[in-house]
Design a protein around this nucleic acid. Structure first.
Lengths: 216, 216
DNA sequence: CGGTGTGAATTAATTCACAGCA
DNA sequence: TGCTGTGAATTAATTCACACCG
């Protein structure tokens, strides 16, 4: 049904949800929010928040705003697979381990069910609550468990090969931390996270913005 | 000079450079590239590459394309601070450690010169080649070393406080891994990297794209 | 030809601005 | 009054398409 929704909208919805869940935590005092409040929490404008909610067909009332719990549920129905979705991670180096810890128990609808590495010493060890397997078992595992989401944290030199194997075994969504442009079929979604690029951008704009400092 | 260049252009330039450096590595056989080759390496279109190079005023020749070494140098002059730039990292947990390893020796013009953590057990330990200090020494360190770039890898609950202290002590560019919208003055650049969002996006589009699979 | 450089056109993303509602 | 929902306008990002060059 949700035909042609942009990457950016999906990203923001994910963020709205996380912030709303945090809101609901302590005494759950506020059961309603206004678009400008969501905007402030997430660093966006109120108009953009309303647009985003429009695209998932969620309506509020001018008087009370949006129901927090209903909105969380609506975003969940939109974003999550009803029966949940399994993900795997490939490359259990420093970064891989850190991410396993990071993702563990984050979204119960989207667990990382296995990790793979060429280092056979890791085989069957459990890291951050996630069991590791040797890479040669990856194909079978993906097929048997119908995994569709993969995280790549191997060195750049191995990333294309890993991507090829993931795609061959049914993965259609990838988060890639290796600094290479992976070549995959058009139907496979890739989100590239380039840490070096991010640092270099921050450094560049740190210099740019420093000049404007006094003006503000 | 470079007034009003977008975040995206800067990001791509950083990526072009990295790919070009990789090219130049082995026998340095190819000393020239065409825009469509850069495009293929980085997952962009040739037209976009040419536009980006236009914005930094780099010209090639129709016959030979662009000189690899000259282009690397030109991008460097554009992106890097001539005398280099120091960065720090705050929050030496799993993710922080992994990033220290990742950034170590990446770009010699942009070293991570120190890490900070509330855990005093880490004080003066050297992790991934980077010395750790207790957070209470952060302000002085930043001032004395004229640091302008910071990486935040603390838990969400501590991120705003850390950001405030960074900004107060002169930081104008931040890479933020905590899932919160940091409130900072307008002149401070922030790149938010939200790992959970990335995973959820990949999961969403994995499902979307699966439907189109046969069509491709 | 097979490139580059670039104005013009297009498409995507965001904001404006306002009617309508409780 | 202060919000939502949304068409229209605006702004940003990318692609088109073509003159020109060796």
């Amino acid at each position: 049904m949700p035909n042609k929704v942009s990457d950016k909208v999906i990203g923001r919805l994910s963020l709205y949800r996380r912030m709303l869940e945090r809101m609901g935590k302590p005494g759950n005092t506020a059961s309603n929010v206004f678009s400008h409040e969501i905007a402030a929490m997430t660093g966006n404008t109120a108009a953009l928040v309303r647009r985003d909610l429009m695209t998932i067909g969620f309506a509020g009332s001018p008087k009370k705003g949006y129901s927090v719990s209903e909105l969380i549920q609506c975003i969940g129905e939109y974003l999550d697979a009803p029966e949940g979705q399994k993900a795997v991670l490939v490359g259990v180096g420093n970064l891989g381990r850190a991410l396993l810890g990071h993702f563990a128990l984050r979204n119960p609808k989207l667990p990382i069910v296995a990790a793979f590495d060429t280092n056979t010493d890791l085989a069957n060890r459990v890291i951050q609550g996630c069991r590791c397997y040797p890479v040669h078992e990856m194909g079978d595992f993906l097929q048997e468990n119908e995994v569709r989401v993969g995280v790549i944290t191997v060195p750049a030199s191995a990333a294309q090969e890993v991507a090829d194997r993931l795609v061959k075994n049914g993965i259609t969504g990838i988060v890639n931390f290796a600094p290479v442009a992976l070549r995959v079929p058009k139907y496979v979604y890739i989100d590239n996270i380039d840490l070096t690029m991010s640092l270099e951008k921050a450094a560049f704009f740190a210099r740019q913005h420093e000049k404007d400092k006094e003006l503000v």
